[in-house]
Design a protein around this nucleic acid. Structure first.
Lengths: 219, 219
DNA sequence: TAGCATCTTAAACATGCGTTCAGTCGACGA
DNA sequence: TCGTCGACTGAACGCATGTTTAAGATGCTA
């Protein structure tokens, strides 16, 4: 067992893993081991030799993607005033195309990485929102956790749906697709965030009559 | 070739097709023909005899689902003051569990049915929104089409993500899952719709400075 | 009754998959 | 120099899949 605590060595093992990430990102998790091996220029047997099974390879890819995202977040935590700002920059960067593709595939698949990624995203959103509310730039909510989750799921879900519905002919163009989606969504999103959607408070007030407790979110 | 213009006969052919819809809904489109045949209590060969190939079976299922949805929409067009109201009732009804599951799977898959369904949904949303704006209950937008698409994609995408992340142990409970999601999302949605999210207009105004034309949505 | 089209099945076929296996090659330590 | 160990390969295995095929059952028509 080699120590792989650092990401310094470009052993064939690591190269296969990174190739698998790219292949999974563009082709989905149904991609065959033989395809991945061919991409990496090795035999299918070697992949098995290194990782034991396809599931274990997948698990290592998940771990690698998660670690990379955490690192990118840490590096950009200064710039990112808001969660959304980080994701926009992150997803629109060409160099992260494989990462973004992998995460989108994971969301499509419902794997554990997707849940972890989204939970992390929601947690961060709660923090940033608290700061925004304290600073007076964000309207306070009766249930901050529910709002953070709702906004995160809406944004990521809409992006996922957009990409799934109109997949880029060249999968390497993922960053362009993401940028295009953000461009088209920005105006209605900003309108909704600053001007709202309904002119009357009646629907909200009616709901508040039924549910007096604002903190409890589960039924 | 029998004329199948009407949906009146409960022939074995139609029964197989409906079984396939249910099976696709709970198991995804990777479900095998043998599984579908077993569910319907027939042999795999008979499925091929009736439909020719799995793709053609899938196409007929798509058509059937789309036709059913159109019918349900037509029947409920009176009640549904808003698009969303229709979808809530539609998706929360136990009897439509297979339909909702099938559509969600189609969205996950990116099939042509999903695109058609969503386009239809967006078109309807544009119409209902226009009425709402005219009636003074909905805030007007600088790009009604973009807003309708944004809101529809957000709502459906969030639901899709929620179901994918936490799939119901019993797939027949889909209606319950949908209802639970709507319950958790209703408060933040209503808050956002009536009170907005940002306290300042600066982000919207900044954007409007860059993009003077409100009608053009494509770059 | 005979013939024919349709419904239906069991078995086989071809293919692609994840995985296993036997064995080759090269490096490195005793 | 020998022996061991890890990297690596090509072929094969077992399995599930979509599809094909031959044949049996059934009912309608002449």
């Amino acid at each position: 067992m080699r120590s792989v605590d650092d990401v310094e060595d470009l052993t064939s093992r690591a190269r296969i893993r990174d190739t698998a990430i790219s292949r999974f990102a563009v082709g989905g998790f149904g991609a065959s081991i033989r395809t991945i091996a061919a991409d990496a220029g090795v035999s299918a047997g070697l992949v098995m030799h290194h990782f034991g099974s396809k599931d274990k390879l997948r698990a290592e890819c998940d771990a690698q993607v998660l670690a990379t995202i955490r690192r990118l977040k840490r590096e950009n935590v200064a710039d990112a005033a808001a969660n959304q700002s980080f994701f926009s920059k992150f997803a629109a960067a060409e160099e992260n195309a494989s990462l973004v593709g992998y995460i989108l595939r994971s969301m499509q698949d419902g794997g554990p990485l997707a849940r972890e990624f989204i939970d992390h995203m929601v947690t961060d959103a709660v923090g940033y929102t608290r700061e925004g509310v304290a600073a007076g730039v964000i309207v306070p909510s009766r249930d901050e956790a529910a709002r953070a989750r709702y906004l995160t799921l809406s944004a990521l879900g809409a992006l996922l749906l957009e990409v799934t519905l109109d997949p880029p002919e060249d999968p390497a163009d993922l960053a362009g697709i993401v940028r295009g989606y953000l461009t088209n969504s920005y105006l209605p999103m900003m309108e909704l965030f600053t001007e709202g959607y309904l002119t009357s408070r009646s629907m909200l007030d009616d709901y508040l009559m039924y549910v007096p407790e604002p903190g409890a979110s589960n039924s």
